[in-house]
Amino acid sequence: MMKKLKGGLVGLCMAAFALTGCITNTTSTGEEIHEWNMTITVGPGSTWYEGALKFAEDLERESDGRMQIEIYTNEQLSAGNQEAGVEQLMDGLKDFSYNSSIIYAGVDQRFGVLSAPFLINDYDDASRVLNGESGQIIEGMLRERGVEPLGFGESGFRQITNDTLPIRTPEDLDHLKIRVPNMGVLTNLFRTQGADPITMPFSEVYTALQQGTIDGQENPVDVTYSSGLVEVQQYMTMWNYVYDAIILGMNKDLYDSLPEDDQALIREVAAEANAYQIQITREKEAMQLEELEAAGMEIYYPTEDEIEQFRNDSQPVYEQFRDIWGEDHMQMFLDEAMGSEEIE
């Protein structure tokens, strides 16, 4: 069983053994036992948690107990602050994390290219981007920032909810206070569409919705469902405006300190965990939508013409971030998302 690191031991491990893992024991053959930590942004009811749990359990089993991971939900190690959680991983103050690429963009705006509005429109687009040269660009940026990428999971397409009206056109967003992650692409996008974007840690969103501090939020179905937001939100619009990839990251210095055999084992187990997490995310979405509707949430599916209105209104964001993303990188993402068709 995975050992739980608590109180002072957590602090000791994170401070003294940040780059090598917290080694507290040895096996009967003298091999070191690594006790590591991992955080996810959302709670234990999410597919993120199920993917992280599979990763931790499989790694412990396949390593014969030498590699043990304790999972912390809701960014507990950074007091709910997602950007701080990513920075902890970059700095070696934690070992593993499942974080959305959107949160990385809150730390380094270059990552925002993966969340350009209406760039990725279906799962085929996502596969071409993440498994192509665009994905390699993201992996290179992660290594620059001290994170070893262990592949991508999936939170799904981000949808918008609110408690005021169904969102059918950009005009429906006018003056709505919408919580978004602390990321320039999304705050700029919602401003161009007339909304009032509010940034706050996700751990505060339910209470803010309940108290009327904000009118709505945007997240994939699984996050909205697993966080119980149906209790404080009446409308959801399935506009698929941003594809939300989650990065299974490991502190790079820690990864580099391990023998090649251990690195290979971690990568193999991570690939299986990511594939599992993606599978259950897609399988569960239809059921989750049915349950949300049964609980009273009205779900609206925009027409192609309505989506085109949102798409056209989002184009200024591409111009605003062209220099940050880089012309060549942005074009590569566009080409791969479109199936390498020429972009006019």
Rank of each mutant, 00 (worst) to 15 (best):
M2Q: 14
K3R: 15
L19Q: 14
T20Y: 05
C22M: 08
T27K: 04
T29M: 12
I33K: 12
E35G: 03
N37E: 09
G43Q: 03
S46P: 11
T47F: 06
G51Y: 02
G51I: 00
A52M: 00
R66N: 00
Y72Q: 07
N74R: 12
E75W: 07
L77F: 10
A79R: 14
G80L: 08
Q82V: 08
G92K: 00
G92P: 02
K94I: 14
Y98T: 06
I102E: 14
Q109N: 10
R110Q: 09
S115P: 00
F118C: 02
I120W: 05
D125M: 05
A126M: 11
N131Q: 11
Q136D: 06
I138A: 06
L142C: 08
G146D: 09
V147G: 00
G151Y: 09
G156S: 02
T161M: 15
N162D: 08
P166C: 02
R168D: 00
P170S: 03
E171S: 12
H175Q: 08
L176D: 01
K177P: 03
K177E: 13
N182H: 13
M183W: 08
V185E: 10
T187S: 07
N188G: 11
F190M: 15
F190G: 10
R191M: 11
Q193T: 11
D196V: 13
M200A: 14
F202M: 06
F202N: 05
I214K: 02
G216M: 03
E218D: 13
P220W: 11
Y225F: 15
G228C: 01
Q234P: 02
Q234H: 15
T237M: 04
T237P: 05
N240P: 02
Y241E: 09
I246K: 05
G249K: 05
N251K: 10
L254F: 14
D256R: 02
S257M: 04
S257Y: 07
S257E: 03
S257N: 03
D262L: 03
L265V: 08
A270C: 04
Y276H: 14
Y276W: 10
R282E: 11
A286M: 04
M297P: 08
E298T: 12
E298L: 02
E298P: 00
I299S: 01
I299H: 01
T303R: 01
E308F: 03
D313E: 14
S314P: 06
Q315N: 06
Q315Y: 08
V317G: 03
E327R: 10
H329N: 15
A337P: 09
A337V: 09
G339E: 08
E344T: 06
E344C: 00
E344N: 09
